[in-house]
Amino acid sequence: MVIKIFKNFGKRFFSNWFKRKKHVKIGFYGPPNAGKTSLANKICKDWTGEEIGKVSKIPHETRNVQFKEKVEIKYKNKVMTFKLVDTPGIATKIDYEDFIKFGVKKKVAQKRAKEATQGVIESIKWLEDMEAVVVVLDASKSPYSQVNITIIGNLLARKIPVLIVANKIDLKRANTKRVEAAFPEYDVVGVSAKFGKNIEEFYESLLRKK
């Protein structure tokens, strides 16, 4: 009984909490290159016609928190207005030499690394301001990394509602079930932000039981 209540806490908390709100500040968190900005762009494009930021194959493209105010999402007679907060990816290590592998020049790579470290710190600082969070994970990678567990554990400790997105389901190695198994107490939606695959299910999860 106790375990069941705990297991369903994440799911229930997210939907019950959303029932009471009309305007929500929602953050996009996750490791670098999971597709946070791609997903935020897809949402912004769908509902405002504009994008929120630039995306790249090189990790840590987003190095500053970026916003989009008043994004009104309508789904099946439900309407909700969001302030979208797209955050830099959270990592435990940043090496400028990793950027050089993508063809970036040394000085530019070093500058990028410096900005990326500050971006991680900025993301963490912003956590306390979030009213709800979409944790974006790369479904083609192992979900058991400590960064993922730390982010989600922290949101739970702060009682911030969480929806997990398993992104990049267009990739062959993507495995949404593995993400669900890693975080069974949360709602997990598999999407491809890049191709808009399953995005309707994402909107439904976001606005469910409102």
Partner: peptide, 8 residues
């Protein structure tokens, strides 16, 4: 969890 995030 708050110590882990502080460590990062």
């Amino acid at each position: 969890s708050e110590e882990e995030i502080r460590l990062i």
